[in-house]
Write a protein that binds this DNA or RNA. Structure first.
Lengths: 242, 242
DNA sequence: CGAGCCGTTGATAGTCATCAAAATGAGTGG
DNA sequence: CCACTCATTTTGATGACTATCAACGGCTCG
C-alpha cells in the first residue's frame, strides 16, 4: 500500500479548491489514519440507516447516493468521484439517510469518523471547508430537483453529462473524454426515467454534433453547444463571489 | 418591537431539537444582533447570485427555495417555516445559489452574517448544530428528487403534505390542521407539475378519507393512512441513531 | 454451453402537459 | 353598492412524452 500521506491527497486538492488550507492544516489531514480498499460494482459503501464509524473517501471510480420508494423504484441524488468524502454527513446526522453504491470498480480510503470530526472541530479552517463541501453537495441535489421537475428527458441527460464533465475537471480528470460506468438502467435511475427511454434518447444523440458516443464512453466535441442544449451553467456547483 | 432576546427563540428551539446547547450557547445566540421585518407574498428574501451580508431567520410564514430553467420554468427544492435560517449556506458559499421567495405574509429576523459565522466557528457546539441543520436540509432536497423522479403526482402531493405537517410539528405549530399559503400554480412548482394537473389531483382528494380540504387549509384526519398513501417515512428529516 | 446482464426494438397505453375558456372571488375605485 | 380588474380555480378537448410489456441478439463468464 502507498504511504498514507499520499492517499488523502485528493481530499486536500478538493478542499483547496474550496478555500485556503494552511501548511499545518494540510499536515493534519495527511496525518489522518486511513486504510485503502478496493470495491466493485454493486458494493454498497453505506446502507440507509447504518450508523457509521468510518468515513469513505473516493479515490478512483464512481459512486452514487440512492434512495428507494416503498415499491422498490430507485432514484439517485448525486454522483461522486475522486476526492469526494461521501459519508461524513451521516456521521454528523447519526445514521445514513441514503445508500451509497459503487459502480464499476473503485478505490476508497476509510478514515475513522472520530479522527475526522475531531479535525473538523479543532481546526475551524478545515471544518469550514468540509461544511462548504456539504453545501455544494446540497446545491447539486437541488439542481437535480430542477432537472427532474422541469426539464425533459433529453435535456436532463445532457445536463447530467455536463455536470459530470465539470466534476471530473475539478477533480483533475479528463473532462472531454469520459466514460460513465453506468448501465442504461442505472442512468435511468439517475434521471428519473426508464431504461428503455434512456436507450432511445442515447440513440437520438447520434445526431447530436456536440458529442460522440461509443458504448459508455463519450467524447465532448463542442462544450459550448452541449452546455447550451443542456441548459447548463456551473454556478450552482461553485464557491466564490458569483 | 419585542426584545431582541426573544426574537431568536425559534432558532434556539430548532437547534435544541438537533442536539444540546449549553446555557452559554443559548445566551450567545440570544445576544446576537438582529432586526425584525415584515414580508409579503412575492417578496424575495434572496436572489440567485446575491452576495449576502445578513442572514434571515423565518419567524412566521412560509418561504421556499426556487430555481428557474433558462426558459422560465420554476422548481422549488424546499419549504421553510418558523425557525429556519434560510440563507446561512449562501453566506458560506459566497453567493446565493437559489432564490428564496416568501408566500403569504411572513415575519423574519435579519442577523448580520459576520456575527453568525463568528458564533458558529468560535462555539463549535453551535457550529455543529448549524452544520447538521444544513445537512437535514440537504437530505430533504434528496427526498424531493426521489419524489420528483419516482413517485406519481398524487403520491408526490401527499408526500409533500406529510413533510409539511412534520415540519410544523417540529416547529411547534399545529400539525393536523394546516394551511398551505400556496396557489395551485405554486404547488405545481413544488411538485414539478402543472397547475391544471394539481387542480385535478386536489379534486380527486375529495374522495380521500385521510384528509379534508377547504380551499388552502387541510385537516389531516388519519395520519397513518395518509403517510402510507404518501409513501412517507420521516427518517430522512431526523437526527439520531436511526 | 447455458446463465445472465445488457442493449435494442416494436407495439401499446397512460400520465401528465398544453391550449383555451369559463367560473369564482377578492379588492378597487367610481 | 356596483362595475371592473386581476389572480385564481375549474373544466373540457387534445396531444406529447414517457412508461409498460414483451421479445430478441450480443456478450461475458463460470
Amino acid at each position: 500500500m502507498a504511504d498514507t500521506r499520499d492517499t488523502l491527497l485528493p481530499l486536500i486538492h478538493k478542499l483547496q479548491r474550496l478555500g485556503r488550507l494552511s501548511p499545518d492544516d494540510i499536515a493534519a489531514i495527511q496525518a489522518l489514519p486511513c486504510t485503502v480498499q478496493q470495491l466493485h460494482g454493486g458494493d454498497m459503501i453505506v446502507r440507509q440507516g447504518d450508523v457509521i464509524a468510518q468515513c469513505t473517501l473516493l479515490i478512483t471510480g464512481l459512486a452514487a447516493r440512492t434512495r428507494l420508494t416503498r415499491d422498490g423504484a430507485r432514484q439517485m441524488s448525486g454522483l461522486y468521484i475522486c476526492g469526494d468524502l461521501v459519508d461524513l454527513p451521516y456521521g454528523l446526522l447519526g445514521f445514513a439517510h441514503d445508500n451509497v453504491e459503487v459502480f464499476g470498480t473503485a478505490e476508497v480510503a476509510r478514515i475513522p469518523l472520530d479522527a475526522l470530526t475531531t479535525l473538523a472541530f479543532e481546526r475551524p479552517s478545515i471544518g469550514r471547508l468540509l461544511w462548504i463541501d456539504s453545501l455544494i453537495d446540497a446545491s447539486i441535489a437541488r439542481e437535480w430537483t430542477l432537472n427532474l421537475g422541469r426539464r425533459d428527458a433529453r435535456t436532463r441527460l445532457l445536463h447530467l453529462l455536463c455536470e459530470y464533465a465539470i466534476r471530473r475537471e475539478q477533480a483533475g480528470l479528463s473532462p472531454r473524454e469520459l466514460t460513465l460506468p453506468l448501465s442504461q438502467e442505472q442512468l435511468a435511475d439517475a434521471l428519473g426515467l426508464t431504461a428503455v427511454h434512456v436507450n432511445r434518447i442515447l440513440q437520438s444523440l447520434r445526431a447530436e454534433p456536440a458529442l460522440e458516443r461509443d458504448g459508455r464512453t463519450i467524447r465532448i466535441k463542442d462544450w459550448r453547444r452541449l452546455a447550451s442544449k443542456a441548459d447548463f451553467n456551473d454556478a450552482y456547483m461553485t464557491v466564490g463571489s458569483a
